[in-house]
Design a protein around this nucleic acid. Sequence first.
DNA 1: CCAACTGTACTATTTGTCCTAGTACAGTCG
DNA 2: CGACTGTACTAGGACAAATAGTACAGTTGG
Lengths: 132, 132
Amino acid sequence: MRLRVDPTSPEPIFEQLVFRVKEAIAQGSLVGGDRLPSVRELARDASINPNTVARAYEALEAEGVIVRRQGSGCFVTEKGSSLATNERKRRLDALVQRLVTEGFHLGFGARELRDALAERLSATPLPPRRDS
Amino acid sequence: MRLRVDPTSPEPIFEQLVFRVKEAIAQGSLVGGDRLPSVRELARDASINPNTVARAYEALEAEGVIVRRQGSGCFVTEKGSSLATNERKRRLDALVQRLVTEGFHLGFGARELRDALAERLSATPLPPRRDS
DNA sequence: CCAACTGTACTATTTGTCCTAGTACAGTCG
DNA sequence: CGACTGTACTAGGACAAATAGTACAGTTGG
């Protein structure tokens, strides 16, 4: 479990960690029940402060992505999002709008956006969902 | 030209403004040559500080989205992104990865992601591109 | 020409976040 | 017991965001 971080990025380190973990789960390299590196171990490996890692794990637990067990470790959750359907839809729309708007200003058209998404999805298929 | 802003959001106000303008352009409600509200006018309408608006306009100019003309106003640019092809591709991939990862954790699968994007693109088609 | 508008550039202050550092406590497991 | 887990503080430095106020410079239209 190797997690890299860019200390020069404007994106906060703890947020980078949060996304990396979610990314690993979305790619299937982490599955429900898997244990994350300990706060101190990950901090040492990435040369950051243990508090920063703890902050990331705290955020991940707040999102329902992991559970933290004192004395035992942090483990990937089995369940899916616990948000209301409207809220989930709203957030998805915001993500799509982000992609479309920024993609357009990068000079990409509708077809290229669709292709990029399709390519990404076929390159690393999403793990099967265990819906509640 | 009505631009709303959420002062309670964790996203900086000036970044919200930047995105709103880019969004309006990507939707065709702003086109090349159009004039944006003045710094002071927009600040008054949105109940924010003129410096915050100036900051947003500065960022938009740095991205090549608008030009600022002293005494005259700010105008939407005609040209597209001036980034290298590799960089454009890298940013698009990052955007797509964001959508896929966050979308997965919201409980959406590959088909739903593709459908959401397709729906968004057909609902408000991208304006024609004036490539350089 | 002049008045009223534009953007631009400062300085100063307040507020909040990020990150580091250090210490300590509490639960778990072999 | 001992070595590991997460958790919870405090403190401080660095930085970003936003506000407030003032001033200057270019443009426009009456």
